[in-house]
């Protein structure tokens, strides 16, 4: 297939798939909390709606970053689609993309001048210090497989079996990262309700549309990456089942867990990262 067509199809699939998964996530959370909840397609409709709404620019904002940071977010997750499903490139680039994602949380909050965004920005710095060690799972995968190429890791698993059986604690680390990025997560300190919507509070109109577009793709790609890295070469059907399973499990956890305060969230994530890294190294040595 033509590369450009391949990229376009994958970006559209990621957006639609991610939107529906996030809609499902919201629906399941509502049902667990004995509410009817919105239709599953609602997240997708919201995303499209915002592209046609009026966009406002706060008088206190730093205009260049206020606008460009959202475009950067959409750009990096589109790059994530290219590096992930399309070319199956280096896992280090995905690590870099995740780092820029954290930067977007930071800058989107601070560039508006809003106090809610500013607090979210400071919390983004704390949360990066705990989420980045979790993403250091890539080093454990490298020690096990000898490569950071996604295609190489898939090949390794087709020969030696899924990594979830050989380095399960590394899988736990990545799942905690996924849980952190899911909506209403106990670790989502940058979007706590005491901060209204945190770094998203001031972004409306097409900027919010781009934001929701990016978050849909982010959820799809992170789920795809988890399944690919730990469950080996999968067919499309198993990917769909796996993504729905991840969405259901995270929705259940989020619906039944309160939001942690920033200190507890950071310490819990760092503790999990430390225990899993040490545990995985011991398992590999033994």
């Amino acid at each position: 297939m033509n590369l450009m067509a391949n990229i376009l199809i994958n970006v559209i699939t990621s957006f639609l798939g991610g939107s529906l998964l996030l809609g499902l996530h919201r629906k399941i959370m509502a049902r667990i909390q004995l509410r009817p909840g919105p239709p599953i397609i609602q997240y997708l409709l919201h995303s499209l709606k915002f592209f046609f709404k009026e966009t406002s620019l706060p008088k206190t904002a730093s205009p260049v970053f206020y606008i460009s940071i959202v475009c950067i977010l959409a750009g990096i997750w589109t790059t994530g689609v290219i590096v992930g499903p399309v070319t199956q490139g280096s896992l280090l680039i995905m690590f870099g993309i995740y780092a820029v994602y954290k930067i977007v949380e930071h800058n989107m909050g601070s560039s508006s001048g809003s106090p809610y965004g500013k607090l979210s920005c400071v919390r983004a710095v704390f949360s990066a210090a705990s989420e980045i060690p979790l993403f250091a799972v890539v080093a454990l995968i490298f020690f096990q497989t000898g490569t950071l190429s996604i295609a190489g890791i898939i090949h390794y698993q087709s020969v030696n079996g899924p990594l979830i059986f050989t380095i399960p604690l590394a899988g736990v680390m990545f799942f905690i990262l996924l849980l952190t990025k899911s909506p209403y997560s106990p670790f989502a300190i940058t979007k706590g309700k005491e901060l209204i919507s945190g770094y998203e509070t001031e972004h409306f109109g097409f900027l919010r549309g781009f934001l929701m577009f990016s978050e849909s793709i982010a959820w799809f790609i992170m789920s795809w990456l988890f399944l690919t890295l730990f469950f080996g070469p999968l067919s499309v059907v198993y990917y769909v089942i796996g993504m729905i399973a991840i969405t259901v499990v995270t929705a259940f956890i989020n619906a039944t867990s309160p939001l942690l305060n920033p200190n507890h969230s950071v310490m819990l994530q760092i503790t999990i990262a430390f225990v899993c890294i040490v545990g995985t190294i011991i398992m590999m040595v033994v």
């Binding site: 970053f65 780092a99 954290k102 930067i103 930071h106 601070s110 920005c121 983004a124």
Partner: peptide, 22 residues
């Protein structure tokens, strides 16, 4: 380091954070 980010100057603070992560 997180305390340093309480000041205004969003474009400058972002480069501190970005450089560290990268």
């Amino acid at each position: 380091k997180a305390e340093m980010f309480r000041t205004p100057g969003s474009p400058f603070l972002v480069i501190i954070h970005l450089s560290s992560l990268f």
